[in-house]
Write a protein that binds this DNA or RNA. Structure first.
Lengths: 128, 128
DNA sequence: ATATCATATACCGATATTGGAATACATCCA
DNA sequence: TGGATGTATTCCAATATCGGTATATGATAT
């Protein structure tokens, strides 16, 4: 029998690449501008090989670009692939909005009930 | 030496849960409404244990809810956790927008150049 | 009680990831 | 040429995944 891959490689797409919290941290850092590996290492306080490896994954899925300059390598953000994730989640946007609405409605009706019973007003502190 | 987890479990958060394409498919299907496992199996054409396992992961990260009804289990979408992903990607939204702008500008300037040389107009077919 | 239907769980093999340490590679400088 | 600096790659152990098959649990009906 032929065995499939256990789990999609992190380099398959941005969904997988970005599932790793550390990689999200790197992207956040790079959103402030291009940085050489060394500064990422200092900024995040990880060891250098780990930084390089995470950058490698991000590079492979196209979330970062590299610019070689002497013995330094400047990495910069390329957020375009994140759009796919953004678009996909946007598909569900109205669900959580409706849910928040329902939660808010419930909270408000509860407060209204409390008010009608002579309790504290919404958002107010008890008399002091 | 103590060894850390190799890779974050899929049940750690919605980022990891949703990295798996199959799980995204399930969520898409459930966005049309509550469904019993059996119908998900039929709809997607996977075998039943696999469907149950994916639902288990989604359940654990709070992306679906279950309603027990006799021997059936109705799963429904709970998209709220996707908001975190949406919000995170939104952080980068202006990056890809700028990039698209730049691409568009480049394309337009190229077309303008072509027009000035007497080539076909933008979006138009050649004279026929 | 027993058979049937709906779903969950356990087991297995293959895979590939993660962090850490050591090392290779590549570039610059003296 | 040789040393120092910046970065990538290799090796390792532990872990958890995914799909498939078989089996267990749970509820209903006869």
């Amino acid at each position: 029998m032929i065995w499939d891959m256990a789990r999609a490689p992190t380099t398959l797409d941005s969904f997988n690449a970005v599932a790793e919290p550390r990689r999200r941290q790197v992207l956040g850092l790079l959103s402030e501008g291009e940085l050489p590996v060394n500064e990422i290492v200092d900024s995040l306080g990880w060891n250098q090989p780990q930084v390089s490896k995470h950058l490698g994954v991000l590079l492979e899925v196209g979330l970062v670009k590299v610019r070689h300059a002497g013995r330094q390598r400047f990495y910069s953000l390329d957020a375009a692939p994140l759009k796919e994730i953004h678009d996909w989640t946007a598909t569900f946007e109205h669900f959580w909005q409706h849910q928040l609405d329902r939660i808010k409605e419930r909270a408000e009706s509860k407060q209204a009930l409390a008010r009608s019973r002579g309790n504290v007003p919404p958002g107010g502190l008890s008399a002091s």
